[in-house]
Design a protein around this nucleic acid. Structure first.
Lengths: 206, 206
DNA sequence: CCAAGCTGTGAACTGTGGTTCACTTTTTTA
DNA sequence: TAAAAAAGTGAACCACAGTTCACAGCTTGG
């Protein structure tokens, strides 16, 4: 026996792996999954292409990981915003606002996570991601119904519609592409969308 | 002078061109723009690839035309539904219902037109398509405001949110992929979405 | 029927970008 | 320090799909 992975090497490998994931995420944030080449990820990370393939067996595998990481961050933020002691409609408003603000701060990433078409393996991750969002909103809507703050409704349908309305408004083709494109500022647009969504749920004015 | 295009040839060429567009549209309806190969379009139309290129200079040009055709059909249907003597909210409900039903009848095409990422040239067409939809809904919303059937609001934001809520619910990743997937039937889902949208606009129950 | 000029053909070409692999360098242990 | 084994390298490979082009087959007007 002449070689066995040592702690130092293990740490370095973990750092490299991390660097690769970070670089990839940054590139995705700039241009979306489709535009990012394996060679670019390697270059940006300061390693050779072959090395990248020592860490991730394929582009799909790499991007599945990127997707999971980015997803985890977004969902946990929203999850946090949905907790608290306020009324369900108020918490929903907070969470949706956070969702919207984060999407606007990083529109390409938001688009990549929500709407960009990706390979089947990555797409499976998206389904999980969506389902988690839907569940979070759904549960809160149901709490609102139970508390009498929202009228009875199919919470699943409603939560999907919520996400759709926001996503389309913020990152769809009609969304202002560059700040200043549109005469309305971001805060106003977000506010309008939130009103639409809350009213759509049947919440009385908050 | 020994050759000049005659009426008969002109008609045949028009028929071929039409066949190519129809085949392409059918293929797009099955799998979306990205999956469709030029060779498949040619094969389905019963001509050689070279012939296809005599009619359309590039894939982008062909698909721009396909997009325009499909688009035209959809928009004109919605436009029709928005006309009439009923109240604005009622007309919106009719139009949105039509939109939803058509999307469900041909979900892949709907996805291709609304959400699938395409080449820049085709994407420009989508922007035009979106703008037309937005304008149609917008105008009706404004009529509703004027008539006092809808509260004052930014009609542009609202119309975008409308389309987003419906699109997401019907063709997004969380939408029931295959009939029977979900416990709710189509009509129920559509009805729920429409209620959400109309309420979102602030319409009193119709 | 013939020449001119068009339309139709599909095998071959090409650019792109993911993936591989023979090789070099580094790390570890005896 | 040497052998063993892993990590790192990047030029070459390959598959795929859009595009081209030299040629065959029709149409037309004389």
């Amino acid at each position: 026996m002449a070689y066995r992975e040592t702690v130092k090497v293990k740490a370095r490998k973990a750092a490299t792996r991390n660097k690769l994931l970070t670089s990839a995420t940054e590139l995705v944030s700039e241009a979306g999954f489709r535009q990012v080449q394996m060679s670019a990820v390697a270059r940006k990370s300061g390693v050779a292409v072959g090395t990248l393939y020592k860490y991730f067996a394929s582009k799909e595998k790499l991007f599945t990981n990127v997707f999971q990481m980015a997803t985890e961050r977004e969902v946990s933020h929203v999850e946090l915003a949905l907790q608290g002691s306020q009324s369900a409609p108020q918490r929903l408003r907070n969470a949706l606002q956070l969702f919207a603000e984060r999407a606007l701060k990083n529109p390409t990433l938001a688009w990549a996570l929500i709407a960009e078409p990706v390979d089947p393996e990555v797409d499976l991750e998206r389904l999980i991601y969506r389902a988690r969002y839907a569940q979070l909103f759904e549960r809160t809507i149901e709490q609102g119904i139970t508390a009498g703050d929202l009228p009875s409704q199919n919470a699943n349908c409603s939560s999907t519609a919520l996400v759709g309305a926001i996503a389309e408004s913020l990152i769809g083709p009609l969304a202002p592409k560059h700040p200043g494109d549109n005469s309305l500022d971001q805060a106003t647009v977000i506010n309008h969308i939130l009103n639409f969504c809350l009213q759509g749920l049947g919440a009385s004015k908050t």
